[in-house]
């Protein structure tokens, strides 16, 4: 299968993923919009008005980047884990496994689908945030690159989760017990400078902290962490998780008996 045929196959997976996202828009696009609106109203307006400023910004402006990033991470992860596990559960993953598509095409197709959902949800949440805040893009390229890299990291993590999952419970455990706590402790609602030194050190082991802060730098121009470190963490995670994902696909773990 030459490269141009591989691109056709890649486009087919991406198109199928986009169709899926739009076909079940009530499950994929609406819930994050409602959840984030509630966050903006409760934490931004009601509670945030009593908190005052953080790093020179109104509290609601401060948390907007983190809330957008939280939506992007959760939705890119959720999209790939449910879509790929669904294809395993319904056995239609076999349509791809019997085809001449190389593993990288399958993986890239699903990751691009997850990025697409992250982008759609991120855009929706950003649009909603304009109803509550007046934020502007401080660094457009940092904002966009952080979005893409963060979504890719969690798309790959979701893919690995889906490969190992044997039942629906297995795809709910990681988002509930790992992803959500990491997100809440990743500096979405606060600056890690507020934490005692020990807990600050603990927080620095959380990769989401770097994503949220890099994204916050892109929108507001402030960050608790070095931008170089943040990019290194994201790119390093993509390389490691991507290599693991490809290896799993090549060996057929969870896919071939």
């Amino acid at each position: 299968m030459n490269f141009s045929l591989q691109l056709v196959a890649l486009g087919t997976i991406l198109r199928r993923e986009l169709n899926r996202i739009l076909r079940i828009w009530g499950q994929t696009l609406v819930p994050p919009a409602i959840t984030m609106t509630l966050y903006f109203v409760i934490f931004g307006n009601l509670v945030g008005s009593r908190i005052g400023q953080m790093h020179g910004f109104a509290y609601i402006d401060y948390i907007v980047p983190g809330l957008i990033m939280m939506s992007v991470i959760q939705n890119s992860y959720g999209n790939i884990v449910s879509s790929f596990f669904g294809s395993k559960f319904g056995r239609y993953v076999e349509e791809m496994l019997v085809s001449p598509m190389p593993s990288w095409v399958i993986l890239t197709g699903y990751v691009l689908g997850a990025l697409a959902r992250g982008l759609m949800v991120g855009a929706i949440v950003l649009a909603i945030s304009f109803c509550f805040t007046h934020i502007q893009f401080h660094h457009v390229w940092v904002t966009l690159s952080t979005f893409v890299l963060s979504a890719a990291v969690f798309a790959l993590a979701g893919f690995i989760n889906a490969v190992y999952a044997k039942k629906f419970d297995d795809i709910a455990i990681v988002p509930t017990f790992i992803l959500t706590p990491l997100t809440y402790l990743g500096g979405v609602f606060y600056s890690v400078e507020l934490l005692p030194p020990f807990w600050r050190s603990v927080s620095e082991a959380n990769p989401i902290l770097y994503m949220v802060n890099a994204f916050r730098y892109g929108l507001l121009g402030i960050s608790d962490v070095s931008l170089v470190t943040a990019y290194a963490v994201m790119i390093g995670a993509i390389v490691v998780l991507g290599a693991i994902s490809l290896r799993l696909l090549e060996k057929g773990v969870g896919l071939r008996s």
Partner: peptide, 22 residues
């Protein structure tokens, strides 16, 4: 065993399979 996405339309299932072969 049946191994296609039961939520997709037959036309899309066949067209997508062709796409997987480039």
């Amino acid at each position: 065993e049946l191994n296609f996405n039961q939520f997709e339309k037959p036309f899309d299932i066949v067209v997508n399979q062709a796409g997987f072969y480039g």
